[in-house]
Design a protein around this nucleic acid. Structure first.
Lengths: 195, 195
DNA sequence: GTTTTTGTTGATTGACCAATCAATAACCCA
DNA sequence: TGGGTTATTGATTGGTCAATCAACAAAAAC
């Protein structure tokens, strides 16, 4: 039965299963057995590849952040004006891949993990810093020194929308969140131009 | 040793200890024994008064929400203009009692609890609804129909600031959060007046 | 063709913990 | 003063689970 080169396949399955189980349970009290079962293998094999449950969580987190980062970069590459670059960050945050119940629940729990796991905290800080940085660089050409404050405000609104979505019953409303944050962006830009 | 009328005292101690332990651990994986020890009693007594760990969590949550609600009401009662009423909600959110590491960590974990515990979800939704409602009513007189959207935006920024603070190393920066959100409020108001 | 590496699992270990129980003691009222 | 109520805890129970181990199988290497 054992075919060669299974490691990357198994790891990917386990990471997907980890996110799915966290999303399903809504918290980190998921057992390695549950994750392994969903990924179609024994818990012993999960331990074989990741060493510990904690390591599985961190890998799942890194994966979510990587996918998110790729989405942002993709959207940014298609943007031309400063305003479009800011909108790209906002839109990527609420795009289908990232803004799903399952993934939102995972994000929420990663914040909890970051409270006690330094590596998780480090990863989330990198994400926060990048978001603010992306937004600041996008806005600086048209807003000058105010760019940083506005970037922080937009970042807060994005995170707030995620937290709000975590309480919503059905699928989250990406449209409303995008509209609201873009309205703020428009407002901030109009004021900057009226200066 | 047993004095009469201990129940309310014990309950209050346990609730405080629950919040402190969650804040200390950063997650909900705190044992009833830990909480009871911090509150100066045996775990059996904690079970005697609350029945279950879950009930202790919900009571702690209700307490945090009650304190927060009282803070908002107090600030609102001292406000006269619509703008001051909106600022009251913002300021209360970042006042010393609520915006402390310990309490912020508890909030974060209550969101996680809400993912699997209907009662916790209900409580948080009440809080969300009240915040938006307070802000909408404050802003309606000067913003008309836009009030609701702006209220949602401010609410998102408040929640986002909490999430951001949960990752901060030292004591959270209430000043910066308040300044940023009030700046947005000023912006929204100036646009409403320029209409 | 045998040895090493990679893949895989059932079973076990060791620890932890929520909840319950039995027992003790102080307080209050009739 | 003695039975009901409230306060309190040490010990136990029953269950869960992360992590490890021993063992087996297939592929690769030599």
């Amino acid at each position: 039965m054992p075919k060669i080169g299974m490691e990357p396949i198994r790891r990917a399955s386990l990471i997907d299963a980890t996110i799915a189980e966290i999303g399903n349970a809504g918290n980190l009290e998921v057992t390695v057995s549950q994750i392994a079962r969903r990924a179609g293998m024994s818990s012993a094999l999960a331990h074989h590849y990741f060493g510990s449950k904690e390591a599985m969580f961190v890998s799942a987190m890194r994966h979510v952040l990587t996918v998110y980062g790729a989405g942002v970069r993709g959207a940014l590459s298609a943007a031309e004006t400063p305003r479009d670059r800011a909108r790209a960050v906002i839109r990527a945050s609420f795009s289908g891949v990232n803004f799903r119940r399952e993934v939102i629940a995972a994000w929420l729990n990663f914040y909890v993990l970051a409270q006690s796991l330094p590596e998780a905290r480090r990863l989330l800080r990198v994400y926060q810093h990048r978001t603010v940085s992306n937004l600041t660089h996008a806005l600086r050409p048209i807003m000058g020194p105010q760019a940083r404050e506005v970037a922080h405000s937009i970042a807060a609104m994005i995170d707030g929308a995620y937290l709000h979505a975590a309480l919503g019953g059905d699928e989250p409303d990406a449209k409303a969140a995008t509209r609201r944050i873009e309205a703020y962006l428009a407002l901030a830009l109009s004021q900057a131009h009226a200066r």
